[in-house]
Design a protein around this nucleic acid. Structure first.
Lengths: 232, 232
DNA sequence: ATTATTATTTGTCAAAATGACATTTAATAA
DNA sequence: TTATTAAATGTCATTTTGACAAATAATAAT
């Protein structure tokens, strides 16, 4: 087999920054690392890119293996490739951020796997450059969520406007005016109001909404401005 | 030395999608590939990531080596990692897009190196998945340029408003209303009007402007909306 | 010297979007 | 019947936007 002679070869890994929302707070999914070095330390969900898969494939595979989750929203963040980022041998890692609805998978997580949710601001020390990855992912999530309706990926099929607003506030670490928020969200035309109400949060109850998936897909690239006084 | 046993190792390369503006059209910098396979075919400027450098370092090095250019605006695009994208052996490539002022480097290019500028829409067939990289880079350039003032990176220190508008029109492949454009650009507060005029384009001449670099750096992340009816 | 030419520059106005702010409403609990 | 509490909705002044045309400055032509 012909080769590009003399060029160094490296390991290539993927690491997934998995965000979730439990209805109240933004959370981050971490696992205890299963191999040396730094075994049993908290880590992002990751793994090596296999011989017959792309990094995208690898991220999906690794996510599924570690959490049982399939069909998750995944987006490439960036590559992390400082020569000494892994002390054992040179490994480049492709960072992905993933968005999921916590409730949908809570059972699988705690039972079958060793993954655990942490409040984003209270997560433990992470191995290697994973803390940097998380910081970058949060920034990108803010950026993207300000312009595109990706946060719906973290909500259950039925959700209320107050829930949605809470999620936006968590992601952007800010308070948003209820009236203006609901006006903006309505004007996107992405929501369909349901009959049912969520009575858990108040006496009056809040109407459930669902996403208009056709419009969501069709207008995903459409430019929104969901955050007031947006400074990216 | 300890190693992660049994994991496959790959080559890692960088490829740079270099955009330039000659005052009239948006152009793309290509080189004739210097090694087998596909030797002498048109290719993006690329190279392998060396043992002691990050991909970012490699991109800068490769750009400098191939063009003499230093301190260029570089931004990571994404990783390209389909298993069979390189027929010789598995190589993952980190795509970067770069923005430069054509005139600043025209001499070096034609004399010392084998790089050549092509109209973006009239570039030759490219090797491997480089055409896809170019397409992705154009898209990302449009996206980013709609929200952040990166296009100034492609202009000389002194430039005119009509030039700037032409550049925006090229990147977005659209016509923009002169009055609205100039109003928006002015409102950013990023431009400083000079005494001198550019008489080359008209009898009346167009005033030169320069970038207020302090404000540029300070407000780079600030959110702009430079394209009318923005659909990303 | 006057006029024509041509790209540059600037102006207006109605419509839409935004941000700041308070009241009403629906359901349960007291 | 009233009190309570979160949800839902309304108003208004300001700013931004998009569509549209006229004025200006310099040279070229007559």
């Amino acid at each position: 087999m012909i080769e590009y002679s003399g060029q160094p070869h490296y390991l290539v890994a993927v690491d997934c920054i998995v965000f979730g929302f439990d209805g109240e707070r933004l959370k981050l999914l971490l696992v205890k690392r299963g191999l040396e070095p730094e075994i049993n330390k908290w880590s992002l969900i990751g793994g090596f890119v296999g011989a017959n898969e792309s990094p995208d494939d690898a991220a999906n595979r690794v996510l599924k293996k570690n959490t049982g989750l399939e069909g998750i929203y995944l987006e490439q963040l960036q590559i992390y490739g400082e020569p000494d980022r892994d002390p054992i041998e040179r490994t480049l890692s492709v960072g992905y951020f993933a968005l999921i609805d916590i409730h949908k998978y809570e059972a699988q997580l705690s039972d079958e796997y060793h993954a655990e949710w942490f409040l984003v601001n209270e997560s433990p020390k992470l191995i290697f450059d994973h803390a940097q990855m998380v910081a970058d992912a949060r920034k990108k999530l803010r950026y993207k969520a300000a312009l595109h309706p990706i946060l719906f990926e973290m909500l259950p099929k039925k959700f209320t406007i107050p829930q949605l607003q809470l999620l936006f506030e968590e992601v952007n670490d800010t308070k948003i005016d209820t009236r203006n928020f609901s006006r903006k969200i309505s004007s996107t035309g992405l929501l369909i109001k349901l009959e049912e109400k969520d009575k858990s949060g108040s006496k009056k109850g809040a109407f459930y909404f669902k996403l208009d998936k056709k419009k969501y897909k069709a207008n995903f690239q459409a430019f929104l401005n969901l955050i007031p006084n947006l400074k990216l």
